[in-house]
Write a protein that binds this DNA or RNA. Structure first.
Lengths: 141, 141
DNA sequence: CCGCCTGATGCTTAAGATTCTCATTTCTAT
DNA sequence: ATAGAAATGAGAATCTTAAGCATCAGGCGG
């Protein structure tokens, strides 16, 4: 569980790190801001500083345990790295985030990079739209 | 020229607005931060406040004259809206930004959104890589 | 062409997100 | 258990962007 992942990442096993990892693992949305993690920890009675949350997330990112994503807006969101690369589709109204992977797009990206003389290292694709879920507050507008 | 664009956008023609528009039009990189525009204006002897730069850029964005892009990092970059939608490819080393448009990708995006039950409104695709330009400071690493 | 009026500007202050500083606490290896 | 190193918490600091407000300037009526 958490302990293993931390050790594997070469990070000392500490309470804050385990708790943060746990929250990331158990989160419904799987895409959390540092603030959200911080508040959740406070709510569950933990004593933790916001600085620690940011520090730990940055270390997790460096260790490859989480990815930091920059959607629109200023706050970064963090998601647990589960291995498979994927892109994101976000509802403008309810904020729901879904993941997808399309091999056609991946291929075209590699091709385009090559055509432009770039050695591609990474990419970010985000689709923004309105979801048609019945729980979406904006449904039907 | 600038005057026309401003009037067309329903914005009063003022010196700061014209100057900012001019810088955006003449920029080599075509992708500038608010800070960069501000410094360029100061360097060319203009009296302007950073707040004005941000304000004007925000108005330009609302008027559809410029787009605000969120690449990695915290600073937004602004580019003059020249009509055609496009995506971006950025060199991790020299920061060079190139634009591209791929109809295959565009199509797949629409398809994916539909499959996931989203009415797509917008999207952002950025490829990050190392360019092979001989001026790139990192070339050959 | 001149002066008003409204909106625009500049400067300062503020707000939000993230990082840094540093004294104190907690792990890990011994 | 214990020392040494690394991690933490609280608050200050920083960076980016957005107000608040007094002053100034562009566009229209005379």
């Amino acid at each position: 569980m958490e302990t293993q992942n931390l050790k594997k990442a070469g990070l000392k096993v500490t309470l804050p790190r385990m708790k943060i990892l746990q929250i990331l693992e158990e989160s419904e949305t799987r895409h959390l801001t540092a603030e959200a993690i911080y508040r959740e920890l406070l709510d569950s009675g933990e004593e933790i500083g916001l600085a620690t949350v940011y520090r730990v997330l940055t270390q997790f990112e460096a260790a490859g345990l989480v990815s930091r994503l920059h959607f629109e807006g200023n706050q970064a969101v963090f998601e647990l790295e589960r291995g498979g690369h994927h892109d994101h589709i976000i509802c403008n109204q309810c904020g729901r985030v879904e993941e997808f992977l399309d091999e056609t797009i991946e291929q075209r990206q590699r091709q385009i990079a090559k055509e432009h003389g770039y050695q591609i290292k990474d990419h970010a694709l985000v689709l923004y739209g309105d979801c048609l879920d019945e729980d979406c507050p904006h449904r039907g507008d």
